[in-house]
């Protein structure tokens, strides 16, 4: 039966059919891939560029980065501390979700874009302490409006930097390239 199928596929009509199937699979795959590159919908169209542009430090809103594993998302009380003094907040349509959230006391559901898989244990503090800057991994936020994932956090990206950092120091390399440093 399989042989007959192959024979049929070898004639011109069959080749065209194979071509169509291949194109269909390929385009679906490309579409699927493109989806993975798209930033998710956020509850608020938060412009990172503006906030960074005002000179607000990353650690002001994400203070966890220097203390522990998670950088953290700011509470809406923190947003409101500045925003309730800004007249536009009351009228702007883009800011309406923030206003609603504060007034109704419901939390804002953010969708974090910089993620590592569950089997990776990442610690911000160690990286900040080692002299890394936020933009080394997260990209230049003055150019980003709604947060996008500027960098695919795969193992190559992490390990490249770990190996580079260790340089000739064999002991440090042992530590930084150890599976157990991130996976447990």
């Amino acid at each position: 039966m399989i042989k007959r199928l192959f024979d049929w596929l070898k004639q011109p009509l069959g080749l065209i059919a194979v071509g169509i199937v291949f194109l269909a699979v390929f385009s679906v795959a490309v579409y699927g891939l493109s989806l993975t590159q798209k930033a998710p919908d956020q509850p608020i169209q938060f412009p990172h560029n503006k906030h960074v542009g005002f000179g607000i430090q990353c650690l002001y809103c994400h203070p966890g980065a220097s203390k522990g594993p998670n950088a953290g998302l700011p509470s809406q009380a923190k947003c409101w501390a500045c925003h309730n003094q800004i007249a536009r907040t009351q009228t702007s349509e883009l800011l309406a979700p923030l206003k609603n959230a504060v007034e109704s006391g419901t939390p804002i559901q953010w969708v974090p874009v910089a993620q590592v898989p569950d089997f990776v244990q990442f610690n911000h503090r160690a990286h900040i302490a080692a002299g890394k800057n936020c933009e080394d991994c997260h990209g230049d936020m003055t150019k980003v409006t709604v947060a996008e994932n500027p960098q695919v956090f795969n193992m190559g990206f992490c390990l490249d930097c770990h190996v580079k950092t260790a340089g000739e120091d064999k002991v440090l390399l042992n530590k930084l390239a150890d599976c157990g440093t991130c996976h447990y």
């Binding site: 891939l33 559901q109 969708v111």
Partner: peptide, 27 residues
């Protein structure tokens, strides 16, 4: 490609504190 790596499975929602207790740090 269609399901496993798609955004639907990758992205999660996170709710920050509305009012963070002062003795708390994220993480």
């Amino acid at each position: 490609i269609l399901t496993g790596c798609g955004p639907a499975s990758r992205y999660v929602k996170r709710e920050p504190y509305m009012q963070m207790p002062e003795y708390t740090y994220n993480g």
